[in-house]
């Protein structure tokens, strides 16, 4: 550890260098911290960086990270100045995780709360089994995104891959570009004033100023899979 500085709002961040520390030591240091700004150096694609945080920290990671970065995040703000591997912000509970590059598959999977912002593209299964978190992607997302998503919102400024929202419950999806295909029981829905309003809020929170809510389409559950249809009895 280097660059220790007195606590103040303008204090420079304290640096944690992964060429000197193990990921376990790094995460232990972040888990002990109660506040402050932290910089993680030399991440070189290591897994589980800044996972399990539960304090109002600001953590900036200087490079590309591996799997499960900022997993289970609570209250902390984590910014990755690079790309990230599988499962970034998986099961995020609250706080904010921002990725300046691209995200691999299962970004924000099963997140319960908080906000995940991806400045680049996200690969397959973005927001799979989402349970209440919000995900805003400036680029495009891959196939099978929002599979079985239960609550929360997914905003995509680019395009969405095949089978979007397959078997979706009550999550809401907003896509500005093309959708390669909708999954089972996912349908396009009317954009009502409350949707334009929440979309404007999400875009603002994500710091995206060059996209207008009216340019987006909304997708969600047709709710045809919620109850057994007796006419389908012959199928079983």
């Amino acid at each position: 550890m280097s660059g220790a500085a007195p606590d103040s709002t303008a204090a420079p961040s304290r640096a944690l260098d992964l060429s000197q520390l193990s990921v376990r030591e790094l995460n232990a240091a972040l888990h002990e911290a109660e506040d402050g700004r932290w910089e993680v150096l030399d991440p070189v694609g290591k897994h589980a960086i800044a996972a399990g945080l539960d304090a109002e920290l600001e953590v900036e990671i200087a490079g590309n990270v591996g799997y499960y970065c900022a997993g289970m995040n609570k209250r902390a703000t984590v910014r990755v100045k690079g790309n990230c591997g599988v499962g970034v912000a998986e099961n995020i509970m609250s706080g904010k995780v921002a990725i300046e590059g691209d995200a691999s598959q299962a970004a924000g999977a099963s997140g319960h709360g908080g906000l995940l912002v991806i400045e680049g593209n996200a690969a397959a299964r973005c927001g799979i089994s989402l349970k209440g978190a919000d995900i805003v992607v400036r680029g495009s997302i891959g196939h099978m995104s929002a599979f079985m998503a239960q609550r929360g919102r997914i905003v995509v400024c680019g395009d969405a891959g095949a089978a979007l929202g397959d078997s979706i419950y009550e999550a809401r999806i907003y896509v500005r570009g093309e959708v390669a295909g909708l999954g089972a029981d996912c349908v396009a829905k009317e954009m009502r004033p409350e949707h334009l309003e929440e979309l404007a809020e999400l875009l603002a929170e994500a710091g995206i100023e060059d996209a207008q809510p009216a340019e987006f389409s909304r997708y969600g559950s047709a709710r045809r899979l919620y109850n057994f249809n007796v006419d389908d009895a012959g199928e079983y």
């Binding site: 694609g45 590309n64 691209d102 397959a124």
Partner: peptide, 22 residues
Amino acid sequence: SEYRALATLPGAADAEVWEPEP
């Protein structure tokens, strides 16, 4: 399979990195 293997190469930090499409 994972970026960390690419990270061992000289110049990896400045290389263009992407995930091959299905």
